[in-house]
Write a protein that binds this DNA or RNA. Structure first.
Length: 853
RNA sequence: GGGCGCGUAGCUCAGUGGGAGAGCGCUCGCCUCACACGCGAGAGGUCGCUGGUUCGAACCCAGCCGCGCCCACCA
């Protein structure tokens, strides 16, 4: 049977990813390799919690990059024999999921209000059961070694318990409170959203200047606004306390046009006297700054725009019921009619939009639940300051700290139906409020019926608990003991505040330790043209298409190789390089596996090239491993590539082919050993092709996915062999270049004589020179090699080549002489640098002298 | 307004004090019994600009030009 497979292998001159990936993945799953036992402690084990994708999500390039990075480290540590868990799960994604299901209902002509909350939530669950695992299947395509048996969801029964426990404890500590406060109202999702979910965009609006007459005077205060409809809610006009123009008016009143309300003229530092007229209308109900000013001065807070984006009765009869935009037109034309409109001019400014729905944010005051963050932030700041949570690259440490030090209360309630319904119950008759992990039966005070809070929690409230809630917290589960804290987190920087900072805070507060020791902030892969990859721009590149076309290994290699500390454009060439590498590895392995003698894989160096190869292999293992451990994926991938392609394939395999074909036992043993170690080293980066090749390896016991990861063996390092073979390689290169330059026919073997030293055997063979002891005059010299006359080479070309080389050498000699003639260089440069320069000079002079004979 | 980062070969990117690198593309030569998704050899760069520090600068410092991202309450 084994012979049959090898026979088939002989015919397969190309690695076909599509033929092997699904099969191998199924084998890994069948082996149960990705589902660890909950044993031991986190100090010995290795664990990672995947940033949970939205349950509505499809795999995008960011997931693919982040997944490739995590899987590389997870696989490496699993192979090292550590009990390894990579937790899988999805996020219920309140707004996004609710929107998807609402849209589906809309297509059936149903609104969620028609069917009611309970039925709607059931529909969402049904949707989740049917479509929610899409992205999970896509992670399998990438080869991600997640624990598919232990998939979690942020609305799991156990997870809800964790969320309620946290809410309750924060409430008991006094951190969570309910307040009427200015929030970012998202008319698109009909909910409040947090500051972090708001994006500012430049918008061209009209800036209207409006005259507010001063009471009992013929003076007017001219104020400017881009939202004239909000004037209906004005409750003051403010000027800067140092502004002499208005000093006498402070304490007086002006009259609000259209409404007639008396507005106190107040002084507040916030007002910039340089802007416009230096008078600012104050609308505490609809502007975040004005809200602050209003609270400072105890102003009335009037709301004229409701959550539906329409004017309410506070706006006055003529405007009630109008949409804000309609109201704006109506207000402007009314002002124009009464002559209060002083000016209109185009005005570009930045305006908040909802990142979720895209709608323009309507700032308004509403009754919401908030969480004070300052106390939670303190220890989360300290652990980062002390590098107990290390952030890489280091510039993000400061970004994190700056934000944390300025942290503000978090609006945690959302006016949605899909999510964690806030665990608060109200008793209407006696106005009692109950916060509990489980619904209380009745009001303890009056025995009346209780009504649960309608709002749900911000999705990020539950995501913040991800690293420990997925492990069973608040129960002291074996999973929690075995896998918390997790080992590291890799993430996009856009969720550093939204998610990472909050996990650090909740981890310390509730799980008693930081959630991870390392945070790696990866770069952003942009579209090919440098724009953001985004669905709406149509600039996205589908990782699944890349996998279909080039294979998962190619995409993984490509993404790791193109990743960097700075943002980079998606590189098709890097993915192709990955595909080429898989193919190269496949064919190099075929050469080895189909030609080796029956021996054990063991290092059995008999020639200097064997010692060279083993030394280079160990150096590569040490370097690639170190790079992976420091999250330098790009260099890890490229160093592995360089070793495999250049050192192993271009040189070693070419050098030892004759020995291999003769069936030499020693070289077979060495090759099998090197292949085994190389496959294991590459497996975390390219799991499929390495596993597939491993299945043909005579040493195979089980799957490569659980094979030992190579520890660099220092005893195999051999500086002498490295230097000698490097010299032979260099000589071979120079001889080949010489041949090309004199246009020697490719297949012809040219006569030559070596003087002084004996070149290694491979030099002549690979450069196609025959070394003899013919004593005739050489036509040229390449290092220690004298090239003899032969019919195939053109004397003129040789002469030209000789002259070119002499010219090259003269310029080198000049350069070195100039440097060494500089007293300051000789005096001040380190001795080693000077000595090196002297050696070079001698070498060049010697060669020049030789060629000038 | 504050902060971070980038500008290196035609393209995409490495390189952070001692002679400019990779992949792709390009040119020339090879179907050499693992691989033409291959092999061999090349061409190609005033390292954005200007000054400074240094024996020596792509790299350190200052300024300028261009580009990107993040944070921030100028109506």
């Amino acid at each position: 049977m084994a012979d049959e497979r090898l026979k088939a292998l002989k015919e397969k001159t190309r690695y076909e990813s599509a033929e092997v990936e699904r099969r191998l993945f199924a084998e890994w799953i069948d082996g149960g390799y990705f589902h660890p036992k909950a044993e031991g402690t986190a100090a010995d084990n290795f664990s990672v919690a995947i940033p949970p994708p939205n349950v509505t999500g499809v795999l995008h390039m960011g997931h693919a990059l982040n997944g490739s990075m995590q899987d590389a480290l997870v696989r490496m540590n699993r192979m090292r024999g550590r009990n390894t868990l990579w937790t899988l799960g999805t996020d219920h994604a309140g707004i996004a999921t609710q929107a998807v299901v609402e849209k589906m209902l809309g297509e059936e002509g149903i609104s969620r209000q028609e069917i009611g909350r309970e039925a709607f939530v059931e529909r969402v669950w049904a949707w989740k059961e049917e479509y929610g695992s899409q992205i999970v299947e896509q992670y399998k395509r990438l080869g991600a070694s997640l624990d598919y048996e232990g998939e979690r969801f942020t609305l799991d029964e156990g997870y809800v318990r964790a969320v309620y426990r946290v809410f309750k404890q924060l409430y008991d500590k006094g951190y969570i409170y309910r307040d009427n406060y200015m929030v970012n109202w998202d008319p698109g999702s009909h909910s409040a959203i947090s500051d972090l979910e708001v994006v500012n965009r430049e918008v061209e609006d009209t800036l209207y200047s409006i005259d507010y007459p001063v009471e009992g005077s013929d003076r007017v205060l001219t104020v400017a606004t881009v939202r004239p409809e909000t004037m209906l809610a004005d409750t003051a006009v403010a000027v800067n306390p140092g502004d002499e123009r208005y000093a006498d008016l402070i304490g007086q009143h002006c009259i609000l046009p259209l409404v007639g309300r008396r507005l106190p003229i107040i002084a507040d530092e916030h007002v910039d006297p340089e802007f416009g007229t230096g008078a600012l209308k104050i609308t505490p109900g609809h502007d975040p700054n004005d809200f602050e000013i209003g609270r400072r001065h105890g102003l009335e807070e009037i709301g004229v725009i409701g959550p539906d984006g329409r004017m309410n009765e506070e706006a006055g009869k003529r405007f009630t019921g109008l949409a804000a935009a309609e109201a704006q037109e109506a207000v402007v034309s009314a002002l124009r009619g009464e002559g209060s409109l002083r000016a209109e001019e185009p005005y570009v400014h930045s305006v908040p939009f909802s990142e979720r729905s895209g709608a323009r944010i309507e700032p308004l005051i509403s009754l919401q639940w908030f969480c004070r963050m300052d106390e939670l932030a303190k220890p989360a700041i300290e652990v980062v300051e002390r590098d107990e949570v290390r952030i890489t690259p280091p510039q993000w440490k400061r970004v994190y700290l700056d934000w944390m030090r300025e942290i503000r209360p978090w609006c945690v309630s959302r006016q949605l139906w899909w999510g964690h319904r806030i665990p608060v119950w109200y008793c209407d008759p006696c106005e009692e409020t109950y916060v509990a992990e489980e619904a209380p039966e009745r009001c303890g005070a009056c025995g009346g019926e209780l009504r649960q809070e309608e709002d749900v929690l911000d999705t990020w409230f539950s995501s913040a608990l991800w690293p420990f809630a997925t492990l069973g917290w608040p129960e002291g589960t074996p999973e929690l003991r075995a896998f918390y804290p997790t080992s590291f987190l890799t993430t996009a920087r856009e969720i550093l505040f939204l998610w990472v900072a909050r996990m650090v805070m909740t981890g310390i507060e509730f799980a008693g330790d930081v959630p991870f020791r390392d945070v790696y902030v990866h770069s952003v892969i942009q579209a090919r043209d440098g724009r953001r990859m985004s669905k709406s721009l149509g600039t996205g590149i589908d990782p699944l298409e890349e996998i279909d076309e080039h294979g998962a290994d190619a995409l993984r290699f490509g993404l790791l190789a193109m990743s960097s500390t700075q943002d980079v454009r998606f590189s098709d060439a890097k993915v192709q390089q990955g595909a080429d590498l898989a193919n190269k590895l496949w064919n190099a392995s075929r050469l080895i596996l189909l030609n080796v003698a029956e021996v054990d894989a063991a290092p059995r160096p008999v020639g200097i090239e064997d010692r060279w190869l083993l030394s280079r292999l160990e150096a590569t293992i040490a370097s690639v491993t170190a790079k992976l451990e420091e999250y330098d994926f790009a260099h890890a991938a490229q160093e592995a590539y360089a070793f495999l392609w250049s050192e192993l394939c271009d040189w070693y395999l070419e050098i030892v082919k004759p020995r291999l074909y003769e069936g030499e036992a020693e070289v077979s043993a060495t090759l099998l050993w090197a292949l085994e170690r190389l496959l294991a080293l590459l497996h975390p980066i390219m799991p499929f092709v390495t596993e597939e090749i491993w299945s043909y390896h005579p040493s195979r016991q089980g799957h490569l996915a659980v094979h030992a990861f190579p520890e660099p063996d220092e005893s195999l390092r051999d500086a002498g062999a490295e230097a000698e073979v490097r010299a032979g390689i260099e000589l071979t290169g120079r001889l080949r270049a010489w041949r090309d330059l004199v246009e020697a026919p490719a297949a012809t073997v040219l006569p030559a004589r070596a003087e002084g030293i004996e070149p290694q055997e491979f030099v002549g063979r690979l450069a196609r020179f025959e070394f003899g002891d013919d004593g005739g005059d050489p036509v040229a010299a390449v290092g220690p090699v004298k090239i003899l006359a032969s019919a195939e080479i053109d004397a003129e070309a040789v002469a030209a080549r000789l002259e070119a080389r002499r010219k090259e050498l003269r310029s080198e000699v000049d350069r070195a002489e100039g440097k060494l003639g500089n007293e300051k260089f000789v005096d001040r440069a380190p001795a080693g640098v000077v000595a090196e320069e002297r050696e070079k000079l001698e070498r060049y002079r010697a060669e020049l002298e030789e060629l000038s004979e």
